Amino acid sequence: MGNPLILQSDFGLGDGAVSAMCGVANCVDQDLKIYNLTHEIPPFDIWEGSYRLLQTIAYWPQNSVFVSVVDPGVGTDRRSVVARTASNHFIVTPDNGTLTHVNKEIGITEMRLIDETVNRLPNSGASHTFHGRDIYAYTGARLAAGLINFEQVGPLLDVGQLIKLPSMDAFMEDDVLHGIIDVLDVRYGNVWTNISRLQLADLQVQYGNLVKVTIKHESAIVFEQEMVYGRSFAATEKGESLIYINSLDNIAVAINQQSFAKKYKIGTGVDWKVFIKKS
Rank of each mutant, 00 (worst) to 15 (best):
Gly140Val: 02
Asp115Tyr: 11
Arg84Ser: 12
Leu165Glu: 06
Ile135Gly: 03
Gln152Lys: 13
Pro155Glu: 15
Phe130Val: 08
Leu162Ile: 13
Val81Ser: 07
Val153His: 02
His89Ile: 08
Tyr138Glu: 04
Gly154His: 04
Gly125Cys: 12
Tyr59Thr: 12
Thr100Pro: 00
Val102Thr: 02
Ser87Asp: 14
Lys104Asn: 11
Asp115Gly: 10
Val67Phe: 03
Gln152Glu: 15
Gly75Gln: 04
Val81Arg: 07
Gly97Thr: 11
Asn96Val: 05
Asn63Pro: 07
Thr93Leu: 09
Ile108Pro: 00
Val82Cys: 00
Thr139Gln: 03
Val159Ala: 03
Leu121Ser: 04
Arg84Met: 14
Asn123Arg: 14
Ile91Lys: 03
Leu121Arg: 06
Gly140Tyr: 06
His131Glu: 15
Thr117Arg: 14
Glu105Tyr: 13
Ser87Ile: 15
Gly146Asn: 07
Thr76Ile: 11
Gly160Glu: 02
Leu121Glu: 08
Gly160Pro: 01
Ile106Gln: 00
Val118Asn: 11
Thr76Gly: 08
Glu105Pro: 09
Ile148Tyr: 07
Asp134Trp: 09
His89Thr: 08
Thr117Met: 12
Ala86Phe: 10
Ala83Gly: 05
Ile148Gln: 03
Ala86Lys: 11
Ile114Phe: 08
Arg120Asn: 10
Lys164Phe: 10
Gln62Pro: 11
Thr85Asp: 06
Ala141Cys: 04
Ser68Trp: 08
Glu116Ala: 11
Gln152Leu: 13
Leu156Gln: 10
Arg79Lys: 14
Leu147Tyr: 15
Asn88Gln: 12
Gly75Glu: 05
Val159Lys: 02
Ser87Cys: 10
Ser68Asn: 09
Arg78Phe: 11
Arg84Lys: 15
Gly132Tyr: 01
Val92Ser: 05
Leu147Ile: 13
Lys104Val: 09
Ile135Phe: 06
Gly97Trp: 09
Leu162Asp: 09
Gly75Phe: 06
Phe66Glu: 04
Gly125Asp: 14
Trp60Leu: 13
Val74Cys: 03
Ala141Lys: 02
Gln62Leu: 12
Glu105Ile: 14
Glu151Tyr: 14
Gln161Val: 12
Gly160Trp: 03
Asn63Val: 07
Ile163Gly: 03
Val118Arg: 12
Ile135Arg: 00
Ile163Phe: 14
Phe130Tyr: 09
Ile106Trp: 00
Val153Asn: 02
Leu113Arg: 10
Pro61Gln: 08
Glu151Thr: 10
Ala86Pro: 00
His89Leu: 08
Asp71Pro: 00
Asp95Ile: 09
Gly75Thr: 06
Met111Ala: 08
Ile135Gln: 04
Leu143Thr: 00
Pro94Lys: 00
Val92His: 02
Gly140Thr: 03
Pro122Trp: 05
Ile148Gly: 01
Phe90Ile: 04
Gly140His: 01
